[in-house]
């Protein structure tokens, strides 16, 4: 981890956090800028080459599926969204701007589809049903098995955030995209992304307990 802060250190109070070295600026662990192979595949796919598009699908399917899974919290839905994302991309690839990286574009399609799914599933509801929703998502056996208690607490706190704050927080904290990438994926201005994150951070801090300062 950048900066050497452990998950446990997160809950150990300010002294533990200050004990680690100078933190490096947050940055994404994923490269969305594309590469020559990808650029060549895009050119061929724009010409109707299905094999070239298949290369792009293979290259991006993991990230797209993971993103959809994180945003929806639903394995089956994420599979459908991932598939639909690539089909939409194929249909619109003629309008894709040459020379642009494929990543932000495909992830934006996936994000929009995931948000549409959430809207359809009425997950943009009032706070009344938040506890049930959080319990349904975070306390699933597969999630509990994969995540530590610390992760689960953060997961519950993120789930309790309003829709756009939650989405931005999930993209930033769980999927580890940076501000610029999140702005590209959601269509929000970078300043709005920072604002959502700042509010989300304050709420997470409050939700995770006043007895432990972040």
């Amino acid at each position: 981890m950048t900066g050497g802060i452990t998950a446990e250190g997160f809950f150990s109070g300010p002294s533990a956090i200050l004990a680690v070295g100078d933190p490096k600026p947050l940055s994404t662990t994923r490269n969305l800028s594309g590469d020559p192979l990808e650029a060549a595949a895009i050119v061929r796919a724009r010409g109707g080459d299905g094999d070239a598009f298949d290369f792009l699908v293979t290259h991006w399917s993991r990230r797209v599926t993971s993103l959809a899974w994180t945003l929806t919290g639903n394995r089956d839905a994420s599979e459908e969204i991932a598939q639909e994302t690539f089909v939409r991309a194929w249909e619109k690839i003629g309008r894709f701007r040459s020379g642009s990286p494929f990543g932000p574009w495909i992830l934006r399609i996936a994000t929009n589809l995931a948000i549409d799914h959430l809207r359809r599933a009425k997950r943009f509801e009032s706070f009344d049903s938040v506890p049930e929703r959080v319990a349904a998502r975070i306390d699933r056996p597969d999630v509990r098995a994969a995540a530590s208690e610390t992760s689960l607490r953060i997961g519950r706190a993120i789930e309790a955030l309003p829709a756009m704050q939650r989405i931005v927080a999930q993209l930033f904290l769980v999927e580890e995209y940076d501000h610029e990438e999140i702005a590209a994926m959601t269509g929000l201005a970078q300043g709005t992304v920072r604002s959502h994150l700042s509010i989300a951070r304050a709420k997470l801090r409050a939700a995770l307990g006043g007895e432990r300062e972040l």
Binding site: M1, A7, F10, P23, R62, V143, A146, A147, S151, V174
Partner: peptide, 24 residues
């Protein structure tokens, strides 16, 4: 703030879903 976000990220990493090969 950066440290705080790094710590949150590290803790939230366990929430990330990794699709298996069959799913992909």
């Amino acid at each position: 703030e950066i440290r705080e976000m790094e710590a949150l990220r590290a803790a939230a990493r366990g929430l990330r879903h990794d699709p298996d090969e069959a799913m992909l």
